[in-house]
Design a protein around this nucleic acid. Structure first.
Lengths: 328, 328
DNA sequence: ACAGATCTTGCAAACGTTGCCACAATCTTG
DNA sequence: CAAGATTGTGGCAACGTTTGCAAGATCTGT
């Protein structure tokens, strides 16, 4: 295809090895380096990544695995990753598992070969699977904590606690939590956070929802309403907005009759009506920070050294218009 | 890293070449093929993609270039691409240009080397640039038409015409079109579609908006209102929803005082209040179809043969609650 | 049973790069 | 000024795979 290292070498009158060194920051005299760089630019030479990968095992790719690109949460994380990678010369290899854990395991295995490091967004895979499939020296896990791997996440507990306190302060005595997919790490953590309700004398019912999507919100809305709760906390905003729509179309007023709190603060949360009170998490920062962590890991190459880094980003309740004082 | 072709060869008792042929569908006896496949599975052998790419030039990657991942339009296209690629053994290389055309040109050049084919979503790059930078044999352009390249897009004209007719039928005599980014292909086409207004005796004002985002909708809303138009058509839904929010917060009632029509029918369009009347385009299908077209191109490898394929997908107006009869 | 066709397999070269080793040239230091 | 340290460069092998070529094995038809 394009010009090779040999072409550049001939043009400058040096050996291929020297060109290689000049291009990748090896030891070369300033004069030759300049000459090589000039010639390379003139010829439009780009080092062949495949050849480079073959010899030193570094592909120059970073793999990102997400469960569902239709979920705006992950696209915001993706944006963060992408923006961080933009300034490096790593390429982004993206895989969407479509919530299929079997395929996720397979893809994890495949991606390892095509990338130097992996960013894994997998709420549903078991810790044990993750530990088995991922190399601690080249992996960063997003949105959950796995002890033996580097992680970037937000702690879901404080956010949920704030949400419960917010509802309690508004006089709600009975709330419903609409849970996320079974096996989800953050769902499990959020349930822990719910424990605070008891201390506040608030009753909690848990309602299950198979998938955390807008459509599933319709069913979940009916279920949550049936519990008799006056306040609802949803696993995520998509679910919350779906419920909101369902409740409004059933003639239930939000927040006069029922208060709703979402999770994640996706862009839609401030565009629906009423605007959604939600627990905001810095999604783009998670992506950005995870990419940065991975690149640090790859640069250091200290093997499976010290204890893996766990980065916790802050999240807090953003109060908008979907919560209000309890009826009566 | 993993086992190599030699390891498998030893395990079976054949030569590396035979293993290679067995793995990639060459001529081998059924018996040896089975033996090789068995051993490969047992050892967990995966052909090294870098080595393969080095020798035959095929990386096994497909590159996708989008202008902005924060725009849900593109993430839906991305989802379509990703879902189609899922069934193949191509990997997806994703690049977000962040609306920067200079970087887009550079990335296009870089990506070519790392992928077998390119899917390009670039509304702002000039046709000439695209023709120069893209190889017709390995490129599919999305959301626009460039004569000499394969394209998958929707024709923006009929949708815009339907929108104008819809407003005219509701009695609107003066409408504003909030334009997209300068240089955008689909924006130019949409303006062509606006010509129908004259035939219907409807006056059209065009308002410029630098970027097609939710935030820009605030400014655009004010500008559009200042024209005195009673109906507004926006370049896309994000802009439309931003305007909607602005208008409502200024005390303008939608659709009683002003009607708004968006473009694209992103998920948010049916979640805002009032729900947005919009021109729907099958975004996921565009992605899916573009990926399919590219894979066909790569399989055929007929060089720069016949005239490039142009696929036009249908789009039509989806009437929701943001349009109504003109005031008075 | 023999010549020729067909099928199956191994050998070796090649893809473009990097990294080790050796050597020459220049610089330091006593 | 000599001896050692340092710096810059070229040669060569290697990464893991594919592929053209040729040789061996098996089969066909007479």
């Amino acid at each position: 295809m394009g010009p090779t290292v040999t072409d550049v070498a001939k043009a400058v009158g040096v050996s291929p090895s020297t060109v290689s060194r000049a291009m990748s920051g090896g030891i070369v005299s300033p004069a030759t380096r300049e000459a090589v760089l000039d010639a390379a630019a003139k010829l439009g030479y780009q080092p062949n990544r495949a050849a480079r990968a073959l010899i030193n095992g570094r592909t120059g790719n970073v793999g990102l695995l997400v469960p569902d690109l239709e979920n705006p949460y992950y696209t915001e994380v993706l944006k963060g990753v992408s923006m961080h990678l933009r300034r490096t010369d790593y390429h982004l290899l993206l895989a969407d598992s479509d919530e299929d854990t079997a395929w996720e395991r397979e893809m994890l295995h495949t991606l390892r070969q095509s990338s130097d490091g992996l960013l894994i967004c997998s709420p549903r895979l078991a810790d044990a699977d993750l530990v088995t499939l991922a190399d601690p020296a080249t992996t960063v896990v997003l949105n959950r904590i796995v002890d033996s791997l580097a992680c970037v996440t937000i702690d879901p507990v404080p956010g949920i606690q704030q949400a419960v306190q917010h509802l309690a302060a508004l006089g709600h005595r009975h709330i419903a939590y609409v849970a996320g997919p079974p096996g989800s790490w953050s769902d499990a953590r959020r349930r822990e956070g719910l424990a605070i309700a008891e201390e506040l004398g608030v009753k909690v019912d848990v309602v299950q929802s198979a998938t955390p999507t807008f459509d599933a919100g319709t069913l979940a809305g009916d279920l949550a309403l049936a519990t008799g709760a006056s306040g609802i906390i949803a696993f995520n905003d998509l679910l919350a907005i779906g419920m909101l729509n369902r409740l409004l179309s059933r003639g239930v007023s939000v927040p006069a009759d029922v208060s709703i709190i979402g999770n994640d603060d996706i862009a839609m949360a401030s565009m629906c009506a009423p605007k959604l009170t939600t627990i905001s998490s810095p999604k783009e920062r998670i992506g950005q920070s995870a990419a940065a962590t991975l690149l640090r890991l790859l640069k250091d190459r200290t093997g499976a050294s010290s204890t893996p880094e766990h980065i916790l980003l802050p999240a807090g309740l953003t109060v908008r218009a979907s919560t209000g004082v309890a009826p009566q």
